[in-house]
Amino acid sequence: MKALVVFAHPVPESFGAAVRDTVVAALREKGHDVRLVDLYAIGFNPVMSADERRHHFERGVNELPVADQIEHIKWCEMLVFVYPTWWYGLPAILKGWLDRVWVAHVAFILPEAEGENIRPNMQHIRHIVAVTTCGANWWLTKWVGEPGRRTLLRGIRTLCHPLCRTSYMAHYKMDSSTPESRAKYLAKVRARIGRL
């Protein structure tokens, strides 16, 4: 399967980087064709310009500013997001990647008549995986509503194959984690990714 790993952490020596490396290694060990997009490393600009927004629904023109990233999402069959959960949601750079890359006529088809809804256009994507760390504990994260998880596993999923499967892995209480808890999480990630 063609797997696109989208990584969003600014610190190269972070635990997030260890999670990314574990994910990539586990995918490759299972024979998946892997592409890695490290949003900070490539200097991805998450800010949509006024001109970009003006042309957001204009077929072809809306693709030009992020053509390289659009090529990645058209290529993949599996999307794996590796990121830290900040303020219960996605890092700004990852949210900006979604805003700028998942454009009309690529990710979805615009309504043609009043009362219609957008239609999905990413049916080649059959699996979405979110791998994250959360400073808060499980129950507080649930109580807040997990906006990051919902954006990826519900919002993005609606644009994918009707039978698209989702997986979610989180290391809770990251702010008070230990070497043992982090090692246990990496082992869990490796095992679950290996079963995809």
Rank of each mutant, 00 (worst) to 15 (best):
P46G: 02
H72S: 13
P65E: 00
D68H: 09
E114F: 11
I70S: 01
H127G: 08
T132C: 13
V106Y: 03
D99R: 03
P10K: 06
G89N: 11
K30H: 11
D33Q: 09
K30I: 04
N137E: 12
F57Y: 14
V19M: 12
P10H: 02
L90E: 04
G31D: 01
G31A: 00
W139M: 14
F44E: 01
E63M: 11
A26G: 06
S49M: 06
L64K: 08
E63Q: 10
R53S: 13
P46S: 01
P10M: 04
A136P: 08
I73A: 05
E63I: 12
E29W: 08
L98G: 11
N62M: 03
W97L: 04
V19H: 03
Q69C: 11
Y88W: 08
V80P: 03
R53A: 15
V34F: 02
G89V: 01
R54A: 15
G89C: 07
V129L: 09
E71I: 10
V24I: 12
P120R: 06
K95Y: 00
H32Q: 02
R53I: 13
F7R: 05
V19L: 11
V11F: 15
R126Q: 14
E116S: 07
P12H: 13
S49P: 08
I93C: 04
L39A: 07
A18P: 07
A25W: 00
G115I: 00
R20V: 12
P12G: 11
H32E: 02
S49A: 10
L39H: 05
E52L: 07
T132A: 14
N137M: 09
P65A: 03
V66G: 00
P120M: 02
F108Y: 13
W138N: 15
M78L: 14
V106H: 04
G60T: 04
W97Y: 12
F57A: 14
A26T: 01
K30E: 11
